[in-house]
Design a protein around this nucleic acid. Structure first.
Lengths: 258, 258
DNA sequence: GGACGTTGTTTCGACATGGAAACAACGATC
DNA sequence: GATCGTTGTTTCCATGTCGAAACAACGTCC
């Protein structure tokens, strides 16, 4: 099992490179990326395609052409008016605003995902229960959502990932609530890393796997638990917040070239 | 507040289009995308760049050129050998395998995130406590991680998002555990949608906001709670699993064009 | 030494992308 | 009717991307 800290040194070059990643929406073979979002926003701000193109240092013909391509794939995005007061103008459709919102959410989700440490377990699927898979890992048996194409079947080697922000920590002597908590994956272990921020704490828990399980909790929670390095703790996370994907095969062919 | 079901009909065109989105890594102005990952994997499989290029229907010269560009940005990726047994060959470096792993994790995380319904609340930041923000929403006051660039400050209008898989449901008559649960955002409400799958249940909870809060729980949990449409339920989610980002301004200029 | 199959490099040509420029059309305003 | 500033459309040109093809170099194997 490995912990992946999403901000581990991608470098900071390039236009979108501050974050080290980019996300885009795809439909009908057309990609809606940050450049397209910028164009739509500039149109909304300027109230016209010509104003937006000028602002962005782009050719109006190309901007219009791009809008047509995007509209073919994503539906109407810009209402364009020729003549009239102000000579004409353009405004975003509801569809455009929805598309931008979706793009923003994707970007935010990615930023949230990339910024959140994620623990990865290696394991083997022991069985399936509908959308859930029971996976045997070094830390013990756990339940996870089977995702990917194709999703993992019994016997498959999988990688199980869980975000640090999905992990809840408990006092090992506490009485677990009888309601939803018994549907959670639970692992007792020892806190081997406790890094305090202003209001949140990064915790690493040795649950018996190769590498520690990462948890992100509030300072309030940590204090309430009396959390300290070396102390015993119980980590839990929902089955539905746990993902199992089939392990990828890259590198298997290396032995052939030796 | 809106719920965003990440799989809401993007269409299924294009190479990566089945999922409706793509993510890529960026370093030094160079983008590492699915096409690059496919090339690296084909090289590992074929044991040579020429074999890989042939398999992919690409020109060898371009594949080699692309590898050089990628290596300038991401470090050594392919060890290439000219002559020798088999005439030569190529193998992936550790760095290449790490890069592929990182790309896969990003893709998997995004797939996991996008496939999970996400509830979005509108709100205003009332105050900050280090990395956490206290946000006033229609559903009530909650705590969330302040993310984005710049991250939200007191007084900012924000969008608060929480994944359905981060939401835990409780019996309203149950005794909350005294440990970590009191650091959670908690909202009582009524289940207005209960859609059962084989092993997981999509639940929508009316918590008093404009749109319902989405939760993804196991069938076991739902049964244990006696969850049914119209029934009272308490929803909770960790502050550290909640994100607050500043609201975007697109569309504000629309009134100017009226 | 010749054969083999790879990497290394270059040239050519086709296609895609995108800015600059120009002409045409539109509808409100004066 | 003329003016204005937008949209609509087209052409031209420069740059970028990428496959096809060819020549060169390499090191093992026969």
């Amino acid at each position: 099992m490995r912990s992946n800290d999403g901000s581990d040194g991608d470098g900071s070059g390039g236009d979108g490179g501050a974050a080290g990643f980019e996300a885009s929406l795809v439909a009908a073979g057309v990609t809606f990326d940050g450049r397209d979002a910028t164009l739509l926003r500039a149109i909304a701000d300027a109230g016209s395609v010509s104003g937006a193109a000028s602002e962005l240092g782009r050719s109006r013909a190309r901007a219009l052409s791009r809008l047509e391509t995007l509209e073919d794939a994503f539906g109407d995005l810009v209402e364009r008016r020729r003549g009239g007061a102000d000579g004409g103008g353009s405004r975003l459709t509801r569809g455009a605003r929805a598309l931008l919102a979706r793009f923003d959410r994707l970007a935010a989700a990615l930023a949230g995902t990339a910024g959140a440490a994620e623990s990865v377990f290696e394991g083997v699927v022991e069985g399936r229960d509908g959308e859930l898979a029971v996976v045997d890992t070094d830390a013990g048996s756990l339940r996870a959502l089977a995702v990917g194409d194709p999703d993992p079947a019994a016997g498959d080697r999988v990688q199980v990932s869980v975000r640090a922000d999905a992990v809840t920590l408990h006092d090992p002597d506490g009485t677990p609530s009888a309601d939803a908590t018994s549907a959670r994956n639970r692992f007792p272990g020892d806190a081997i890393g406790v890094d305090r921020g202003d209001a949140v704490v990064d915790v690493r828990v040795d649950v018996g796997a190769e590498e520690p399980l990462a948890a992100l909790v509030t300072v309030d929670s940590a204090d309430r638990l009396g959390l300290h390095e070396g102390g015993a703790v119980v980590a839990s996370f929902k089955a539905t917040a746990t993902r199992a994907t089939r392990s990828k095969a890259a590198g298997d062919a290396d032995e052939r070239t030796e």
